[in-house]
């Protein structure tokens, strides 16, 4: 039972981070980022591709990259189990690196949008993300591809049976920080211009703002945040295997969450993430019981896909604007007006 709740909370934290970043781009900025999985993958590449190479170099390990990673990860894990600060240090280092890498990748991949309408932009981002995914999958030299590489367990100093809880707490803390950061950001002039841009680009241009710069900035921030989720997920599973970063789990699910929670409402998205993960895990958890109850002649796994699909359709149908609607902006002057 505790495991189930921990698992729900962990993925709630992870999906909250990714979905909030998507909400910034899509909900507030109107950029349909159907390539979200790429930016989560960027975080994974930072750990698997950069941190691992640094460790291999530091320990002076010979041999092919994948096997050497296993040894490096093992040695580092041993060190961390003696020294908690080291583990946290590595985590923070990777998060910072992922923020930088995510921002760069995000900014670069939005450049084509200078020419594109929204639906084409979405498809282009999806295609770019698939291309990178396929190359990383088949080329085992970069981050181990389909073999994957091991990464150090940054919480190795915590006894095994409690480590899951610790990762969950870590994830939740990161999610809270991201949420607070975004709330602040979106209540600044930047956030207001971003919403204006979504509604009417020309208006923003008329006010003398550079639309392209705004988009690049938004994608950079959004992608940096998504990359953080990638880092957390990699450390939690102590390995980078590229097929874990596919488009269903890291692009389509976040979209479903944003639409479910309410476009342009961060609180709604958090709630959406919670309901989504809760439903998904509960179906997953109880599918065997449902199968026995109904005496179904096929495996419960199929039932899980069907139920989940139907629920998603029902939600889209009955809550088209999401659980929570977008709230009007309360700038300090407006607030003081209301309070009067």
């Amino acid at each position: 039972m505790v495991e189930l709740i921990t698992l729900i909370l962990f993925f709630f934290a992870l999906y909250t981070i990714v979905s909030l970043s998507l909400n910034l781009e899509f909900g507030y900025g109107g950029i349909p980022n159907f390539g979200k999985a790429l930016y989560v993958l960027t975080g994974a590449v930072v750990v698997g591709g950069i941190l691992n190479r640094l460790l291999i170099w530091y320990f002076g390990i010979e041999g092919d990259f994948i096997s050497a990673s296993s040894i490096a990860a093992y040695k580092m894990t041993e060190l961390i189990s003696q020294n908690p600060l080291l583990g946290l240090g590595i985590f923070i280092f990777c998060v910072l690196l992922a923020i930088v890498a995510g921002a760069i990748v995000g900014a670069l991949s939005i450049l084509p949008s200078a020419k594109l309408k929204e639906d084409y932009l979405g498809v282009t981002l999806l295609a770019i993300s698939e291309v990178v995914y396929l190359i990383l999958f088949y080329n085992t030299e970069i981050v181990g591809g389909y073999y994957g590489v091991s990464t150090p367990d940054i919480l190795a100093f915590i006894p095994g049976e409690y480590r899951m809880y610790a990762y969950t707490v870590l994830g939740l803390i990161c999610a809270i920080i991201v949420y607070l950061f975004l709330e602040r950001l979106l209540n600044s002039p930047y956030g207001r211009i971003l919403r204006g841009h979504r509604e009417n680009e020309d208006l923003i241009k008329a006010f003398g703002r550079d639309v392209m710069k705004l988009r690049v900035k938004t994608m950079a921030i959004g992608s940096a945040i998504a990359a953080i989720a990638g880092v957390i997920f990699v450390f939690y599973s102590a390995s980078v295997v590229v097929n874990a970063f596919n488009r269903v789990e890291w692009t389509f699910y976040p979209f479903l969450i944003v639409l479910l929670g309410g476009k342009g409402n961060n609180r709604g998205v958090v709630l959406g993430a919670f309901i989504f993960v809760l439903l998904k895990m509960l179906i997953d958890f109880y599918k065997f019981d449902i199968k026995y109850l109904l005496h179904l002649p096929f495996e419960a796994v199929w039932l899980q896909y069907i139920i989940f699909g139907i629920l998603a359709l029902l939600i889209l149908c009955y809550k088209p604007e999401g659980i929570l609607k977008e709230r009007p902006i309360f700038t300090p002057p407006i607030k003081s007006r209301i309070n009067e």
Binding site: V2, G160, E161, S237, A238, S239, V241, N243, D284, F288
Partner: peptide, 30 residues
């Protein structure tokens, strides 16, 4: 992890080596 939550401690599988790699640290810590 979900199955462990259901009180399952023993498993047959997974089939592929990349899956084995990902669950290996978890089998050790839990």
């Amino acid at each position: 992890q979900l199955l462990k939550g259901k009180g399952v401690n023993i498993f047959v599988g997974p089939l592929s080596s990349s899956e084995v790699k990902t669950i290996l640290p978890y089998t050790l810590s839990n």
